[in-house]
Design a protein around this nucleic acid. Structure first.
Lengths: 253, 253
DNA sequence: TCCCGCGCCATGTCCTGACAATATCACAAG
DNA sequence: CTTGTGATATTGTCAGGACATGGCGCGGGA
């Protein structure tokens, strides 16, 4: 019965910071996540029960529960009433997150590059106006960029933003991602709705992506909202399917 | 200042069932969701603060908070500290859920159909064995189906399941979706990891989907796990991109 | 030997209470 | 007129306790 043990690497949770701005449940959940990813808590292992953990860490049960819930929501742990909490078996992958392509590439260790193809102010037609929540004929910023990773073209991105963002410079866009530029201006993107589909390459996309005419591309249409629900960005992008795909982890309610 | 009011349709929450098996927070969140979808609480409206709501409903603040959190996680509400809770502006769409294509189609009011193309037991090769978590050479169930909606072909689905599901009948698969069949057997799918991509149609797919050779298809590769983390199903599917696309709502942490 | 019921255990739900952090607004000071 | 400062409102975090619910094992009875 040596495998009946429950896992809880106490030493990882020795120095919780009760004074700093980082919430306790977040400190616990991120360390727990690291322990799972590093293999310190192996797949299939059972965690100690919530009450004991709370006692061990000197926290209340709701706090521990919230930390665990965080990882359950992300598909790293599975809870069963009467049984306990287990680490999910199988490799853990990164879910589709609310981040830009630029950050995705950066975090995977590749060298992202940007070529600005268009950077202008245009008038909104009917379709654009309805997506962006502005009036027909209003000025909007149009942005078209080619993205590369390690020198290989990956995507062609076309974005539209409200006129107040007309002062974003070419240099800013070339050095970082659009979302990073927006964040630096104090605009926080909170919610995005996107539709993923596929079609053939159109127009100059085949040359920009370095693929033959008629080849398929993966497409994304995305609308992003800020805190107050205002539309910040509307874009449709196309990706080289051999260079890029979307991974998601779905968790049943 | 007639627009300074906070919204809270009290009458919708009059008859909460404290004795039944449905949790209170779930009752509150589902009615609140209905009120938002129906327009009883319009987009942009501010909700009354949590403490008052709790008092009004005779519930504690954590319970109300949990109900609201549920909708925040799904992108229907936005919370800001010091400000309050607002209904998000813009149309609300359904997120990619852990449901089968069959259920997706059914819920949108279309008439789904199934044609079984293959239903057999095969031996697992190396790639299949690693995905399904079985040994190379083990028996696995192979399933290939063509899906139609209102008579038009939409997708070709190929699934592999462990040998213990070999007794699933053709009739079961033709009348409902795979996930419904599994649920009826007491197998609950909790977590799925999927990869969305695109490629050209291959082999007989062009005829099965009713599209020309060389046309693009949207592809999904999915691995589904049950409660205990065991692999239940592995499949790769392809969809007609003009008939089907994936919609997601992303919410920043 | 097999089956059923009882009790233990772990999570699920819900409560009360408290303090912290932050955005808004009014108002006074420069 | 602008700026800083404090009061107020509202969500964020955390504690500690109580009871319900569902699995699972164990022991007793047939």
């Amino acid at each position: 019965m040596s495998d009946d043990r429950t896992y809880w690497p106490d030493e990882l949770f020795a120095d919780l910071d009760r004074t700093g701005p980082v919430p306790l449940y977040f400190q616990v959940s991120s360390r727990l996540e690291a322990a799972i990813h590093s293999g310190a808590i192996p797949p299939g292992a059972r965690l100690e029960n919530e009450i004991s953990i709370a006692g061990r860490l000197g926290l209340s049960r709701p706090t521990v529960r919230r930390a665990i819930q965080e990882l359950v929501d992300r598909g790293l742990l599975v809870r069963r009433r009467g049984i306990g909490t287990q680490v999910v078996q199988g490799r853990v992958t990164r879910p589709v997150e609310l981040s830009s392509l630029f950050e995705d590439l950066q975090s995977t260790g590749h060298e992202p590059g940007t070529v600005i193809l268009a950077h202008e102010v245009v008038r909104a037609d009917e379709s654009l106006a309805s997506h962006l929540g502005v009036a027909v004929g209003d000025d909007v910023v149009r942005l078209r960029r080619q993205r590369t990773t390690d020198g290989v073209p990956v995507a062609v991105l076309e974005n539209f933003l409200p006129a107040e963002f007309a002062d974003i410079t070419r240099e800013q866009l070339e050095s970082t991602g659009l979302y990073q530029v927006l964040r630096a201006r104090g605009v926080a993107i909170r919610i995005a709705k996107q539709k993923i589909g596929a079609r053939r390459v159109q127009g100059d996309e085949s040359e920009l992506l370095g693929i033959d005419r008629g080849h398929p591309v993966l497409t994304v249409e995305r609308v992003a909202f800020d805190n107050s629900g205002r539309v910040i960005e509307f874009g449709h992008h196309c990706y080289r399917p051999d260079m890029y795909s979307f991974e998601t982890t779905l968790v049943a309610k």
